[in-house]
Computed example of a mutant assay.
Amino acid sequence: MSAAFAQPAYQKGVVPNSLAHGKRVSPDVSSVADPYTGYVVGISSINNNATLSTDPFAIFTYGGTSLACPLTAGQMAVAQQASGKVLGFANPAIYATSRQQARTVRDVVPPRTQQALAFTSTSTGGKYLVSLNLDTSLTTARGYDDVTGLGSMNYQFALAVAQQRHHG
Results as ranks from 00 to 15, higher is better:
Phe57Thr: 10
Pro92Asn: 07
Pro111Asn: 10
Thr124Lys: 04
Val14Asn: 02
Val32Gln: 13
Ile43Asn: 09
Arg99Val: 11
Arg165Cys: 10
Asp28Arg: 01
Ala162Asp: 13
Arg106His: 14
Leu150Gly: 03
Gln163Trp: 06
Asp145Tyr: 11
Ala93Pro: 06
Ala20Met: 01
Val41Tyr: 07
Gln114Pro: 04
Lys12Asp: 01
Gly38Cys: 04
Ser53Asn: 14
His166Leu: 01
Ala158His: 05
Gly13Pro: 01
Ser123Val: 09
Ser18Tyr: 10
Leu132Pro: 00
Ala162Leu: 12
Arg142His: 15
Tyr36Gln: 11
Leu67Asn: 04
Thr61His: 08
Ala96Tyr: 05
Pro111Glu: 07
Ser30Cys: 14
Pro56Cys: 08
Thr51Gly: 06
Ser44His: 10
Ile46Arg: 13
Ala4Lys: 12
Ile43Leu: 14
Met1Arg: 12
Pro70Gln: 03
Phe157Thr: 05
Val105Leu: 12
Val109Tyr: 02
Asn47Gly: 14
Gly125Glu: 12
Tyr62Leu: 15
Asp146Tyr: 03
Leu129Glu: 06
Val32Asn: 15
Gln115Cys: 12
Gln80Ser: 15
Gly74Lys: 09
Pro35Ser: 07
Lys85Cys: 10
Asp146Trp: 01
Ala77Tyr: 10
Ala158Met: 13
Gly38Leu: 07
Ala160Asp: 14
Tyr144Met: 09
Leu67Met: 14
Gly168Val: 03
Arg142Asn: 15
Val105Thr: 05
Gly38Val: 08
Ile59Thr: 14
Met153Trp: 07
Ala73Gly: 09
Gln11Val: 05
Thr139Ile: 11
Val40Ala: 14
Ala50His: 08
Pro56Phe: 08
Ser83Val: 09
Thr37Tyr: 01
Asn47Ser: 14
Ser2Gly: 04
Leu150Tyr: 05
Gln80Pro: 02
Gly13Glu: 09
Lys127Ser: 13
Asp28Phe: 01
Thr61Ala: 05
Ser152His: 08
Leu159Val: 11
Ala158Phe: 07
Asn49Pro: 04
His166Pro: 04
Met1Asn: 02
His21Cys: 02
Ala4Trp: 12
Ser66Lys: 08
Phe60Val: 13
Ser98Leu: 00
Ala50Cys: 04
Ser137Tyr: 05
Ile94Val: 15
Ile43Cys: 08
Ser66His: 07
Thr136Gly: 12
Tyr10Lys: 04
Thr113Tyr: 11
Thr136Pro: 01
Ala116Pro: 00
Val14Leu: 09
Leu117Gln: 09
Asn133Tyr: 11
Val40Ser: 13
Ala160Met: 07
Asp28Thr: 12
Thr97Phe: 01
Phe157Lys: 02
Val147His: 00
Gly63Met: 08
Arg142Gln: 14
Ala9Arg: 06
Val14Pro: 02
Ser121Pro: 10
Arg24Tyr: 15
Gln75Pro: 00
Tyr128Ile: 05
Thr54Phe: 00
Leu71Ala: 06
Ala158Asn: 09
Gln100Lys: 15
Asp28Gln: 04
Ala73Leu: 13
Asp34Arg: 07
Ile46His: 08
Gly22Glu: 05
Leu159Ile: 06
Ala160Gly: 02
Gly13Val: 10
Leu138Asp: 13
Thr120Asp: 03
Arg24Ile: 00
Val147Ser: 06
Ala3Met: 08
Thr37Gly: 02
Pro70Ile: 07
Met76Trp: 11
Val15Gln: 11
